[in-house]
Design a protein around this nucleic acid. Structure first.
Lengths: 206, 206
DNA sequence: ATAATTTGATTTGTTTGTCAATAAACAAGC
DNA sequence: GCTTGTTTATTGACAAACAAATCAAATTAT
């Protein structure tokens, strides 16, 4: 029984190491260019060992997907529950993602460029968790609209998509270095600008 | 001389037909799954003929990319020049893209899911034209900010990314049918909601 | 008759997934 | 705590599968 646990732990560790390597390769070569041989090399294990821990290549890819998507989910659902004001909730989500961009750029790269928009992904139940995130967010908006803090006229679906779309595009800009971020404070500044414009719009107030 | 012209025309037509087929295959199988054999079949030509009109597979992909990206560019740069008010400019861009979604969903699918976020794409000068579109848009915002129609405090880079990001996400939602659009009028409604929220934000006015 | 187009079978190259051999980890008996 | 047997991890060479690119032959247009 004790040994059982140890084995499972070891297996998990090894799988994780391989996935980590796979993500690195993925980020460098993309969905198409990724090769088991490269993953093995990056993980510093033999070719065959990858097949000891994963059934096949698809299995590896799915593992990447599954691991990736959970980052998003937890951040959003946490924020939905934990924070009090709308602004705090939004800030909690964006800050989390901006930090992830800063700390695990390769990881975020994979999530944003490859995982989300892959046809394979769109078919899996990973996608379901993605839409769940969207609807969790939309519920927050609806709640605050009913409280009177948001315009009665807004289409919350559109708002939801705008939030994630806008955020994703900015994160993308950062990851591909189209938006330069020299100092760490810049992240907070970007995050604030984003939320402020999202809530208040860009038009000059009359 | 005359024959020369005719040849060029014919070649263009053939290349176009193959690209069109390639886009269809691309939409169905993605960057990874696309095979010359499938393209040939879809275009109803022999395998070898694809290699008569294109140097190799990469050449075909590049042709897809190049063709795709121009749609975006023209819409944006047209709007920048033609329309008068900011709202009209924005509306011109969104309407164009919403219509494209309606009329060529496969095409838009390829552009949004595959072309834009492919590492290969990010390296090419296709990407340059993409950033050019962004900066064209940003210039519009700066112009109207100076006119006093937009808040002095906005970060125009963030606003630009929010616009394209939000728009892209909504278009994505439509293409993958996460946002259902039964009637054609819905497109206009979505487009209006988007622009209105983009300009005025979501917060209730005090 | 000549040139341009079109074909698909063949070659060439690459990558997956298998497998038999080896090493390490572990448990049981002495 | 040492020996032996058994299971599990690890290796890399290899075969099978697959898809790209080539090319000589056939067709069609001029």
């Amino acid at each position: 029984m004790n040994t059982h646990y140890k084995n499972k732990e070891k297996i998990d560790k090894m799988q994780d190491a391989i996935i980590k390597a796979a993500i690195k390769v993925y980020a460098a070569k993309g969905m198409h260019g990724i090769r088991i041989a490269d993953i093995a090399k990056e993980a510093d294990v033999s070719y065959g060992l990858v097949y000891h821990y994963f059934k096949n290549k698809e299995d590896v890819l799915n593992a990447i997907f599954a691991k990736s998507i959970n980052i998003f989910l937890r951040a959003i659902e946490n924020a939905a529950v934990q924070e009090k004001s709308l602004e705090h909730k939004l800030n909690s989500i964006t800050t989390f993602l901006f930090n992830a961009c800063k700390e695990f750029p390769e990881f975020m790269y994979v999530i944003m460029f490859e995982v989300i928009w892959t046809p394979k992904f769109l078919e899996t139940r990973n996608f379901m968790s993605f839409t769940r995130a969207f609807s969790t967010f939309e519920k927050i908006l609806i709640e605050y609209r009913e409280k009177g803090e948001l315009k009665k006229s807004i289409d919350t679906t559109v708002s939801t998509y705008m939030f994630f779309g806008g955020l994703e595009m900015i994160l993308t800009g950062i990851v591909i270095k189209a938006i330069p971020v020299e100092k760490t404070e810049m992240f907070q500044k970007l995050s604030n600008s984003f939320i402020n414009q999202y809530i208040n719009g860009i038009a000059a107030s009359k």
